[in-house]
């Protein structure tokens, strides 16, 4: 039974322990308490996907996710994807293909795409569309985002090939 106030979980591959109220939602924990503002609050109702993070390898809407659910889980946010010096291939591909305009949906798009590529390294258009259907973008349209995911998949495959060499 855990009613306690100290919540422990793995955040971006590092262990964290933080005091959390019973009603706290994961999105607020990340943004307000832990200062990780890469994860965005869009609709706050599970419609737009701007708050998408990955919990134990699955994309979830952080705005609908009670913080206590992540106890002993592994959470990945956009801050854990890459750094300014060392972008993740998905981040590179989004920049290179012009899949970013205002950028508000981008962290969520990246996380949904990341979850997809972990499971399906070589997705077809339909698989990408299904994985991103819960992420709304109001600027670019989705063509360039789709392109970016495909480009990232290619980059990731290439770097694997290079590693093997």
């Amino acid at each position: 039974m855990s009613k306690g106030k100290e919540l422990s979980f793995t955040l971006n591959n590092k262990p964290v322990t933080v005091e959390v109220e019973p009603h706290t939602i994961l999105l607020d924990l990340l943004r307000e308490k832990l200062g990780l503002t890469g994860t965005k609050r869009g609709c706050g109702e599970g419609e737009c996907g701007a708050c998408t993070v990955i919990v134990n390898n699955e994309a979830v809407n952080a705005c609908l996710y009670p913080a206590w659910k992540v106890e002993n889980c592994s959470v990945l946010t956009v801050e854990g994807l890459g750094s300014e010096e060392n972008l993740h291939p998905l981040q590179e591909a989004f920049l290179e293909t012009g899949a970013v305009q205002c950028g508000f949906c981008t962290p969520g798009m990246l996380m949904s795409s990341y979850a997809l590529l972990q499971k399906t390294p070589d997705p077809d258009d339909d698989e990408i569309k299904t994985a991103l259907a819960g992420n709304l973008c109001r600027c670019t349209g989705y063509v360039k985002i789709l392109e970016a995911v495909k480009k990232a998949a290619y980059k990731m495959k290439q770097s694997e090939v290079n590693e093997e060499k």
């Binding site: 996907g49 979830v60 996710y65 259907a133």
Partner: peptide, 8 residues
């Protein structure tokens, strides 16, 4: 819903 909803 969406994949994020179906996952949860």
């Amino acid at each position: 819903g969406s994949l994020q909803i179906r996952n949860v």
